[in-house]
Amino acid sequence: MVSNSNINNVKTKTIGEIFSKDPKIICRNVDVFYGEKQAIKDVSIDIASREIISFIGPSGCGKSTFLRCLNRMNDTIDTCKVKGSISLDKEDIYDEKIDVVTLRAKIGMVFQKPNPFPKSIYENVAYGPKIHGLSSSKEELDFIVENSLKDSGLWEEVKDRLQSPGTGLSGGQQQRLCIARAIAVSPEIILMDEPCSALDPIATAKIEELINQLGKNYSIVIVTHSMQQAARISQRTAYFHLGELIEVGETKKIFTMPKDKQTEAYISGRIG
């Protein structure tokens, strides 16, 4: 447990507003190491309920690494060690008592490259609810699948071919299928790691619209290399550089009047 007395009383070099009034996730002094190499240095940030926050920064700065800390996906990498504290609803997610399985059911994830299972569209969406036992009957499962596909805007396109393989869809459809798969287990937070980087502009526009929709019900953390995208969809933006969180703030402010020189250099295109 993270006691309330010290969470907003943290030493940080980060410029801007790292705190939020209604925090869902609270990260304090997070360091991440791959073996000897430190990929994340002393990052502290809050993620609020029902906000869309984007992580931007030059590639290799640790955006994905930090994102993957939030649902403990880094556990799957042997060399990766996480220090500091990250809590979800004031409960330390790296506590021994926490089961990663339930954690990841609460925090869904969408990856850079669309990665549907090589199974049917139906199976792709139904898999999560099945393993977590969210439905007790076929009808319930069908209902969940249909709703998830509707929420991800894919239902109309695939309702007649739910049994055909998910890998047969177009890239954009596959990514929306992956989003449907993530929301099928009713998560509270969705993490997205450059979800549009493998898609064409039209598919990207659809996903962005979808993210805007989903932002009403979920907290969404999205890593993006496109500053326009961050500007279009997120309420808050965090700028990472070489493993450090340089600046956080309202997206509008970050893009119009960044306080930090490095942030300014990045958004004006001087750091790639």
Binding site: R104, A105, F111, C178, R181, V185
Partner: peptide
Amino acid sequence: SIKDAAYGIGASKLQTIFHH
């Protein structure tokens, strides 16, 4: 990426191995 997908949705290691 398939393993990531399974882990990401909350499958345990055993489920990931046996199902995917």
